[in-house]
Design a protein around this nucleic acid. Structure first.
Length: 196
DNA sequence: GTCAGTCCTG
DNA sequence: CAGGACTGAC
């Protein structure tokens, strides 16, 4: 049909060699062993819990709260990446539930609230706090509800026709970050947080 | 050129 | 969640 095959050969030569294998020069390389020293599963767990407070942590903030890790470009980008992935999941859930509500006949945001027994809450909690051994801060519920309503209104208003309609929502949500409790700065915060 | 961020894949 | 491609600001 319409495949002239003559106007789409622009790409394929963008290997600018700007890729960095992230092989930080390991100074202390005794007897040939290179200590990986990456982020541990606990760091991931901690990051997820932090997400309940901050959706958009700055790299500086991350360095403060993960003082026990030696930051290099890889670690930094990996942590940034984690939060980016966290946000993706978060927003995908929000959109999903907002659309579901609309399909279910909900007409106003007044009928969209998020409590600890909401399906949406359970989905989020399952993702960031799977073991359910952390008490999710109330503020997170509020932010989640605001986000859900933001999506709901945007969709109802037909904003989603614009390819970048979510940007406006992100702009709103990024301002709702809370202060992360000082305890999170402790390398052993998990034990302390989950002990209570 | 780098780097933080996103998109979208797997 | 990690990879890879890509964008945008520095």
């Amino acid at each position: 049909m319409a495949q002239p095959g003559c106007g789409t050969d622009v790409s394929k030569a963008t290997l600018t060699g700007s890729l960095q294998p992230c092989q930080e020069t390991v100074g202390g390389n005794w007897n040939g062993w290179i200590a990986p020293e990456g982020l541990s599963p606990n760091h991931l767990k901690k990051a997820k819990l932090m997400f309940f407070y901050t959706r958009y942590p700055s790299s500086n903030m991350l360095k403060m709260f993960f003082s026990d890790v030696k930051f290099n470009r890889c670690i930094t980008s990996q942590l940034i990446k984690w939060f980016s992935n966290f946000r993706e999941f978060y927003y995908i859930q929000m959109e999903k539930f907002a659309r579901q509500a609309i399909n279910d006949g909900v007409t106003g945001v007044e009928d969209l609230s998020i409590s600890r027994d909401s399906e949406l809450y359970r989905a989020l909690n399952m993702h960031y706090n799977k073991a359910n051994d952390f008490e999710v801060p109330e503020r997170f519920l509020e932010v989640a509800q605001i986000t859900l309503r933001e999506f709901f209104n945007a969709i109802v208003a037909g904003k989603d026709v614009d390819p970048s309609w979510k940007k406006a929502i992100y702009k709103v949500i990024c301002k709702l970050d809370s202060e992360v409790p000082e305890i999170f700065k402790s390398p052993n915060c998990l034990q302390e947080l989950l002990h209570e």
